[in-house]
Design a binder for these strands. Structure first.
Lengths: 232, 232
DNA sequence: CACGCAGGTGTACGGCGTACACCTGGCGGT
DNA sequence: ACCGCCAGGTGTACGCCGTACACCTGCGTG
C-alpha cells in the first residue's frame, strides 16, 4: 500500500527531510491540515516513524520555524543601520509571504530556538553597530515586535465578499450605517486602487509605512541621546 | 451523577451564561484546557447541551472575545485625541492582563464579530474627531496593529530559569558567548531592576514606550498634513 | 557468524469536536 | 381537560488527533 512504485527503496528519512516535508505540506494544504499522520503519509511512512526524528509535534513546529528563519537574507555588510535593518525586515517579510502559515506558527512557539535567538541577536547587533545604546536597542526591539519577522498583527483578513452583487450592496449600506468610520476608510482605499468595495488595502504599503515610522522615531531618539533614565 | 445537590433545579443555560462560564474556565485552567466537554462539566451539563446555545467551538471563542471587549472602558468624552486613544488602549491592556489567554484568542479569530468592529470603528472615530484625514487614520490604525488591543507580540515569554544556580551560571555564560547582544540587554535590564538574571523586563514600560513613540509619530505626520499621495 | 542498534511498524489509548436521534417537561390553544 | 409543540437537555457514536509501547528488520561492526 505504502511501498514505493519504483523498485528503489525510499531514501531513509532524517530530521531535515522531515522538516522540509512539513514545510512543503503546510505550504500546500495549510497549517491546520498538517498532522503527524498526514505528514507521514506524504513521506511514504507510518506515523510513528516520524518520532525517530522529532520528539513530538511541538518540536516539529520549532524545526519548521528554523527552516523559515534560514530563508531570511543575512545582513548586508557595510550598510547604514537604518537601511540595513529595513532590508533585513523586508527580506523576512518576503519569506513570510511565501509561507503564509509561518507567522501564526512563530507566534505560537512558547520558547525561541537557538536559530531564532541567532536571528534576534544579529538584529540587535545591527542597532548596536549603528551606535545605539544597549538601553535604546532593547526598547526599540520591543517596539518593532512582530515586525522583526516581517508581519504585522492583522486586524482581520480580507473579508470574502458575497458573490451576489445585490447582497454586496445591502451589506455595504449596513456597514456604512453601523461602522461609518470603517466604511469611509474602505471607500477611500477602494477608490485609491480603483477596485471593488471591500478589496483589502495595500499590505506592503501599510507594512512599510509602519516600519518607516518606527525607524524614523528610533533615529530621532538616537540622535537626542535618549535614555530610559528619563522615563516620564 | 450530574444532578444538583440542592433540591432546586439548575437555572437553564443561555448563551451568556455559557460564554461567561467559558471565560471563567479559561481564566482558571488556561485556554488550552478549555474544551467543550470540560466546559459542559463545569456547567453541570452534558457536552452536547452547549450546542443549543453556540453553534460550535469557533463561535464560542468569538463570544468569549466579545465578553472581553465589553470589559474595555468606553472612550472618555471630551479628551484630546492623543490622551483619549492612549487611555483607551491602556484600558484594553488592563483587561487583557486579567485574561492572559485573550490575546492569543483574538489573534486566532479569522473574522471580526460586530462587537469587535464596533470597537475598531470607535477607535478610528477618535482619530477622525482629532482631525485626522481618513487616509492617515487608516494607516495609523494599521501601524498600531495589535496594540489597539493592549498587547504586543511577545518575542518570547519570560524563560523559566533552572533552579540550580550552578546551571544558571553555566547557561548565562553560554548565552553571553553565543548571543552577546541579547546577553548585554539581559544584564542591563537585570541591573536596572536589581533582580536576577533572566528576569523579564518591565512590560508596562515597554508597552508605553512603543505606544508613545507611535502616537508621537502620528502627531508629527498629522501636523505636517501627511497624505499617502506622497508615497516615496 | 553473532550482536547491536538505527530506523520503520502495528496496535492501542485517551482526548477532541460534533452529527444525529432521542427524550422530557411545561405552555398555549382548543 | 386534553393534546401537541418545541426549547432545552441527553446518549451514543464517528472520525480525527497526538503519541506510548512493544515489536520487527536489516545493515555494519566485532
Amino acid at each position: 500500500m505504502v511501498q514505493q512504485v519504483d523498485g528503489a527503496r525510499r531514501a531513509p528519512l532524517n530530521r531535515d527531510r522531515v522538516l522540509r516535508g512539513a514545510v512543503a505540506l503546510a505550504d500546500n494544504v495549510g497549517i491546520e491540515s498538517l498532522s503527524m499522520r498526514n505528514l507521514a503519509q506524504e513521506l511514504g511512512v507510518v506515523p510513528m516513524a516520524l518520532y525517530k526524528h522529532v520528539a513530538n509535534k511541538e518540536q516539529l513546529l520549532d524545526g519548521m520555524v528554523d527552516v523559515i528563519v534560514g530563508e531570511i537574507d543575512p545582513p548586508v555588510p557595510g550598510a547604514d543601520w537604518k537601511v540595513g535593518i529595513r532590508q533585513r525586515i523586508l527580506s523576512a517579510r518576503k519569506v513570510l509571504l511565501r509561507h503564509p502559515w509561518a507567522s501564526r506558527v512563530i507566534e505560537s512557539r512558547p520558547q525561541p530556538t537557538p536559530v531564532v535567538l541567532d536571528y534576534l541577536n544579529s538584529m540587535v547587533g545591527m542597532f548596536r553597530a549603528g551606535g545605539f545604546s544597549v538601553d535604546l536597542a532593547h526598547h526599540v526591539m520591543h517596539t518593532l515586535g512582530s515586525r522583526v519577522w516581517g508581519f504585522t498583527q492583522e486586524l482581520f483578513p480580507a473579508s470574502p465578499l458575497p458573490a451576489d452583487p445585490e447582497k454586496q450592496e445591502a451589506m455595504f449600506h449596513e456597514m456604512a450605517a453601523r461602522y461609518p468610520h470603517i466604511a469611509e476608510i474602505a471607500v477611500a482605499a477602494a477608490h485609491d486602487e480603483a477596485s471593488v468595495v471591500g478589496r483589502s488595502c495595500d499590505d506592503q504599503f501599510e507594512f512599510e509605512f509602519a516600519v518607516d515610522l518606527l525607524l524614523d522615531g528610533f533615529e530621532r531618539l538616537h540622535q537626542q541621546g535618549w535614555t530610559s533614565a528619563n522615563r516620564s
